[in-house]
Design a protein around this nucleic acid. Structure first.
Length: 541
RNA sequence: UGGGGUAUCGCCAAGCGGUAAGGCUCUGGUCUCUGAAUCCAGUAUGCGUUGGUUCGAAUCCAACUACCCCAGCCA
């Protein structure tokens, strides 16, 4: 274990611990509160927790941090577990912080007996008013010097339900003048007459995070408690409990913090997600505009791509804003390598070939990246769809695709020429009449562009939706995605077509490039995935 | 104004006193049945600023500066 090369500061610290404390086993934990779905920020934490333990041949527990019954439910527990499994991680043991309530309660008693905790009668407002400010020290509670016996009795009464919510709290007796506000006699138990989703009405007092977390870590034998940077200020408190609770035996856990994930253009916050969902701005936790794992799953991201992303962004302590194209690069790279190919026309324009009246198979490479990759037959006929954006009535100078009287190569098939643009009644282009140039080579016609196409009578309809990139150029938003989400009309529905050969594969149709996904596809079968390559790579130009 | 952190290419990020890894993006070139992908090449004389120590500093010291977090009976 000593020969492991660290790849980040956490691993470095662990290696030092192994030497100093002579640790035999590394244990980490992933401790979500079951009050929402897993998001990409969790994914980063999950990867750090599991991968770090794995690297040292240790293991990771999953612990539901269910110390606040007012927000939590079994539903989220299930969702969380599913997402972790989906990412491909296996926890050693499943714990609920609420399972430790008796232990945590005993630790509180222990603290009281040592004279290091007291029952306080102040209201939340009073406590807040006496906490002091960032620069000024706080004032000690008038109840701070109650006798051990009185505290014991009062705390017992708290547990017995003799007081109303908020009437009393148990506080750690530390230092009201401490420069770190977390150390100014923090509340460690509060009264809540709320049923807990697992414990029912067994308890009416609940421990605070700051108290429950270090004790849970110690109880489980966690050696390294990895969390995000905003808990740095809590570490002295964490250590205070670890050092002062005499019921703790064995290795003392160490908290190490890392920077949480920020992605440019999106907001990663369960609180916001709840708000957006409640107000109906998004459809639900798997709304494609949300950075939740459920959403990424729906869009066709693979667990490996999410993991790869987490590896690529690294682990450090500096506040960073990761560009979403790193994530996109991960999924694109993977799909480009592994996925089945499909030809799709997302925004169709009809073209008729006037000098052709057959139906024939044209072979299209399954994966052009791989040499000798399988080729699939695609039906070619005189009635085709091409992508609307592959034709320009009045071409710009660098437009290489189809134009009036211009030439273009149809992927895998012929060179054609656009002879006539037929306008519809609404003033828009209805269709194009084109002709095949059978001897293009001989004539020295070398079109600069190649475009994809589908036979109208041999393709099937699918429904796609466009999302993201909905801002008009020049529009500036401070909150990025949050503001984009707020406009429910930003979804644009499109009818598109897909070639059925692809559907002969066991296919769970997924179009993965950020920007499109196939919402509904009657052709889909569970199991595989299909990458609609031809469209995905267009819209960046 | 108190405490805790962070500052290395457009964006992440290695580096731990010996003369700036890598990835994403970008730019050339290559190739091609899409301008994609592939493959090849290129991109910080510089590591927040200013001083100091040293033969030698992104790395050590000092003083500044900027940004982030903290005053829930949330986690």
């Amino acid at each position: 274990m000593e020969n492991i090369t660290p790849s980040n500061f956490i691993e470095q610290a662990i290696i030092e611990d192994i030497k100093e404390k002579k640790l035999k086993k590394i244990v980490t934990r992933f401790p979500p509160e079951p009050n929402g779905y897993t998001h990409i920020g969790h994914a980063k934490a999950i990867c750090i927790d599991f991968l770090t333990a794995e690297k040292f041949n240790g293991y990771t527990n999953l612990r539901m941090d269910d110390t606040n019954p007012s927000k939590e439910s079994e539903h989220y527990v299930k969702a969380l577990m599913e997402d972790i499994k989906w990412l491909g991680f296996k926890w050693k043991k499943l714990y609920y912080a609420s399972d430790y309530y008796p232990f945590i309660y005993d630790c509180a008693i222990d603290l009281i007996k040592q004279g290091k905790a007291f029952v306080c009668d102040m209201t939340a407002d009073e406590i807040s008013a006496n906490r002091g400010t960032l620069t000024d020290p706080g004032k000690e509670s008038p109840y701070r010097n109650r006798s051990v016996e009185e505290n014991l009795k009062l705390f017992e009464d708290m547990r017995a339900g003799k007081f109303k919510d908020g009437e009393k709290t148990l506080r750690a007796k530390i230092d009201m003048a401490h420069p770190n506000i977390n150390m100014r006699d923090p509340v460690i138990y509060r009264i809540m007459h709320i049923s807990h989703f697992r414990q029912g009405n067994k308890w009416c007092i609940y421990p605070m995070y700051d108290f429950a977390h270090p004790l849970s870590d110690a109880y489980e034998g966690v050696t390294h408690s990895l969390c995000s940077l905003e808990f740095e200020d809590h570490r002295p408190l964490y250590n205070w409990f670890i050092d002062n609770c005499t019921l703790i035996t064995g290795v003392k856990p160490r908290q190490i913090e890392f920077a949480r994930l920020n992605i440019d253009g999106t907001v990663i916050s369960k609180r916001y997600f709840h708000e957006l969902i409640e107000k109906g701005y998004v459809d639900g936790w798997d709304d494609p505009r949300l950075p939740t794992l459920a959403s990424f799953k729906r869009k066709g991201y693979t667990p490996t791509s999410i993991r790869e992303f987490c590896t690529r962004i690294g682990v450090a302590k500096s506040n960073s804003l990761v560009q979403p194209h790193i994530l996109e690069a991960c999924i694109r790279e993977e799909l480009n390598r592994d996925a089945m190919r499909v030809v799709a026309v997302i925004d169709p324009l009809k073209i008729n070939i006037t000098n052709y009246d057959k139906v024939e198979d044209v072979m299209i490479s399954n994966n052009p990246t791989i040499e000798n990759s399988k080729k699939h037959p695609v039906k070619f006929s005189k009635e085709l769809y091409i992508e609307k954006e592959d034709f320009m009535l009045e071409p710009t100078p660098k437009f290489f695709r189809l134009t009036p009287n211009g030439y273009v190569r149809l992927m895998g098939a012929y060179v054609i020429r656009c002879d006539e643009v037929v306008m519809g009644e609404n003033g828009e282009i209805d269709h194009l009449n084109c002709s095949i140039i059978p001897d293009a080579k001989e004539q020295g016609i070398k079109p600069k562009g190649t475009i994809h196409w589908l036979s109208r009578n041999h393709s099937e309809k699918i429904v796609t939706r466009k999302f993201f990139n909905l801002l008009k150029e020049g529009e500036v938003y401070e909150k990025g995605m949050l503001d984009r989400i707020v406009n429910p009309n930003s979804m644009v529905e499109k009818v598109s077509y897909i070639e059925p050969f692809a559907t002969k594969q066991k296919g769970n149709m997924q179009f993965v490039r950020m920007g499109y996904y196939i919402e509904d596809c009657k052709l889909s079968k569970p199991g595989n995935r299909v990458y609609l390559e031809t469209v995905s790579l267009k819209d960046s130009k």
